[in-house]
Amino acid sequence: MLRLVGLNQAYGQSRILSDIDLDIAEGSCTCVMGRNGVGKTTLMRTIMGQLAARAGKILFDGVDLGGRPAYDRARRGIGFVPQGREIFPRLSVEENLQIGLPAARPRGRGIPDRIYELFPVLHEMRHRRGGDLSGGQQQQLAIGRALVLRPRLLILDEPTEGIQPNIVADIGRIIRRLNREEGLTVVLVEQKLAFARSTASHFHILERGRVVAGGAIDGLTDTLVQAHLSV
């Protein structure tokens, strides 16, 4: 479904990603891992078109996304939940969700009922401002906003960062449901090993902007963790 070929990214003269090759199979849940500063968020933003790749290709269903803006990638079926959530704090929960409707596939006339089914708290608080929600509730709102698009691929950058444990458990349950029961392809950046192992089917580890390990999640051994993830 998603294929990266020789992807390179840099800020000025500082190279962040070097010759990234990745294949994300349809229906998989892939966790991208690595220590802080190795390029995980840069990789996600480049896939989504928020940053233009310096070199290489990003193929989605065989179509080269090079040069296509983020909104075009959303319309093609890629949903994105950025690190830090980036909701609109002065807009209501309902208004935050409605923002995604113009890019929905097919174009939506209203917020899908399934969003409120997955996140009942968003229905309860639909008239509250996004900035009045707790961090965990804002994360649920950010995921809901991405799901309004009816994506075929959902990218989540650090979905459990700074979230209380009970909502982390809810988010994990929802990701597993979307992936395993509904067939949504998922790519997530995650630091919590237990969460990654219980949620993902595959993993890739970045180090200094390069992929240094990957495979089925059962292959994420303690040796790999010690060598590339421990601090």
Rank of each mutant, 00 (worst) to 15 (best):
L118D: 05
L206D: 12
Q50L: 15
R128G: 02
Q138K: 08
L65I: 09
H228C: 01
G209S: 08
P165E: 11
L229F: 01
M48W: 00
V32G: 01
R197W: 03
P159I: 00
G130S: 04
G6P: 02
I171D: 10
Q226S: 12
I24P: 07
V231W: 00
M125D: 04
R3D: 12
E124K: 04
R109Q: 12
G77N: 10
G49D: 11
R208Q: 14
L2C: 13
G67R: 07
S230C: 01
D157F: 12
G131S: 06
R15K: 15
R176Y: 09
Q83E: 15
G77E: 09
L51V: 08
M33K: 05
D222A: 07
R180V: 05
Q98N: 06
L184W: 07
G183T: 04
R177N: 10
L149V: 07
E182L: 10
A74V: 14
G34F: 08
F88Q: 01
G162W: 13
A74K: 04
E26W: 02
T160L: 11
V211D: 06
I58T: 13
I217A: 11
R129T: 01
L22C: 11
L7H: 13
R85K: 13
G215Q: 09
F195P: 04
A25S: 15
D21V: 06
L7Y: 13
L59I: 10
L229G: 03
L59M: 15
I143P: 11
R128V: 01
L153T: 12
L154G: 07
H123C: 05
S134P: 12
R45I: 02
T160E: 09
R208K: 13
E95R: 07
L4E: 08
S28W: 05
S14Q: 14
A200H: 10
P102A: 01
D132G: 12
R176E: 11
